[in-house]
Structures are given as C-alpha cells and as structure tokens.
Design a protein around this nucleic acid. Sequence first.
DNA 1: TATTGTTATACTCTATAACTATA
DNA 2: TATAGTTATAGAGTATAACAATA
Lengths: 151, 151
Amino acid sequence: METGATGEGSGVLGETGLGGQVRSTVGRLYRRFRSERPDGSLGDTALEVLTRLYKNGPQTLTQLSEHDHVAPASMSQTVNRLTSAGYAVRTADPNDGRKVLFSPTPEGAELARAARIQRNAWLDAHLQALSPEDQNAIARACVLLSNIADS
Amino acid sequence: METGATGEGSGVLGETGLGGQVRSTVGRLYRRFRSERPDGSLGDTALEVLTRLYKNGPQTLTQLSEHDHVAPASMSQTVNRLTSAGYAVRTADPNDGRKVLFSPTPEGAELARAARIQRNAWLDAHLQALSPEDQNAIARACVLLSNIADS
DNA sequence: TATTGTTATACTCTATAACTATA
DNA sequence: TATAGTTATAGAGTATAACAATA
C-alpha cells in the first residue's frame, strides 16, 4: 500500500498520517455499523440520542446538539423523529420558559436498553476475541479520541 | 456517569460495554469530522473514495462498494458525484464489458492530495500533542478496528 | 442464468436561513 | 438584544427495487 504516487516523504505523520488512519478507520467503522442496522428501526443518530437521554436523564436541545457537534436545528429534527415515534417527550422547563427538556418514554427506555445490546452484539463478540492488551489499547484510544472530539 | 438507571451489573463489557464505547466514540468523531468540512467541498464519503482511487489505482464499482460495506447502487451514486464534478472518469474494462474502471482525473488527484492534508490538519495537531504511548495505542486500535470493519 | 452496473424512489442526517417565543 | 427552539428547504449518503447489458 502507499505505493508512492507522489514520492514525497515517508514519515509516519506525513502522507499516511495517523490522522488519516483515524479518519479512514472511523469512516469505515461508522458505515459498517450502519450496515448492521435492523430494518425499520431508528437510525444511529436518533438511537444514540435516545440512549443518552436514558442514561443521563432529561436534557435540553442545546445540550444535546453541543454534545454531538451538530447545529441545534439538526438536533431538533432528530428529536422530532423520536417524539413522532413515541420514544421521547417534550417537557417545559419550569425555571426558563425558553427551554425544553427531552425525556424518554417507557417505550423509549425499553428500546434504548434492548437496541443497545442488540446492536453491539457483533462488535462485542469481535472485541472479546482480542487479547486483554488489545482491548486495553482500544479502550485507551476511545478515551483519547473522545477527548479530541470534545475539543 | 452511568448512574445506574437499571441497576443490573457493572461489568466492563456489560451495560457500558467496550462495544458501546467504540460505537459512541466513532459516531461522535465522525460527526466532528463532518463539522470541520470546508463549505462547498466534497462530502467525506466521496473524498475518501477519490483518495482511494488516487492511492490504489483504478477500481471497479464492486470493489469500491465492498470495501466500504455499502450497496453497489449507493456507491454508484457516490462516484456519480465525483464524475459530475470532474474529479473522476469511467473507463471500460477491456477484458470484461460489464466492468467499469474508475480513475481520478488530474484535478481529482490534486484535490485528493490537498484535501487530505487540509482536512487532517486539526486532527493531526491534536494527535501530535499526545505522548508516544498514547499515539501507539491509537495506531494499534486503528489496525484492530479496521480488521473488525472488514470481517 | 449469473454478474455488473445504473436509475428511480425514499429515508436519515445534516446545514443554513428565517421565524417565534421567552429572558 | 440575546437566548432557545422550530420550521422550511436543500444536499450528502444510504437502501431497496427494477432495469439493461454483458458473460
């Protein structure tokens, strides 16, 4: 690979940089996740938002949109898909009339629990087949890359 | 975090499994990458395909779609965006009339080189600030996760 | 018949712009 | 004015189904 179509340098962080590897790996894994999605179910983004509401409790639109680095208008449409499907509800914030708190319905909570296990099944199976050292490397990378995503 | 909305177990690979961490990290990084995209440019998928053509040489539609785990019809539309924009061309396979080989144009090759450096700039900057051990963990995780994406 | 690729159609996800309502 | 959220519209990316052309 990297057969040198340009011939400029061979540093690890140059043409084949670690950043490029991360991007490529992330993109391919992301599409692989999507290809595993059961038919007729929520998309990955909507399910992740629902899971976050389930795990961390009610949150405002701004909190959700900032966490995912998407525009508020984008997140508004994502939560619309959740509320339309009956998996989440809007509640007015008693202290600030401008804010809206989103919470999972009982159906949404159940879906969050079930879908997460279901969707992670094949991934967890592969991860558990790795050595403890390899698992640690991945766990470490997740923490580091998650911090970068927040920066 | 993980304040125990369910109260069932606390194993590392249970409710908060490594698979879930990987999924969450990948999803957030993917969206973060997208938010860094310069306006009016190619999307991430199209650019990655173009980069692959540039690096690995002409490939058929089936090769491209299998590499990314997307349907052939999906990849057909992605390469259509590339050819419409003048960054790639179709060539008939001389040995098999059913096959079509996609190659970058000179403009596409130039874009692949420039865009890759440009888009990875902020990511590389963050990665280079990490310790060598942390960088190694990420590089190792990329190899391992890329293998899983291929499985 | 099987393989390769394309087009038609629909859905998810995201963005920007313009808007309403509350502070 | 500033902040929080929504709706309208557009584009990228993906899927399935139906199709054409070649092997």
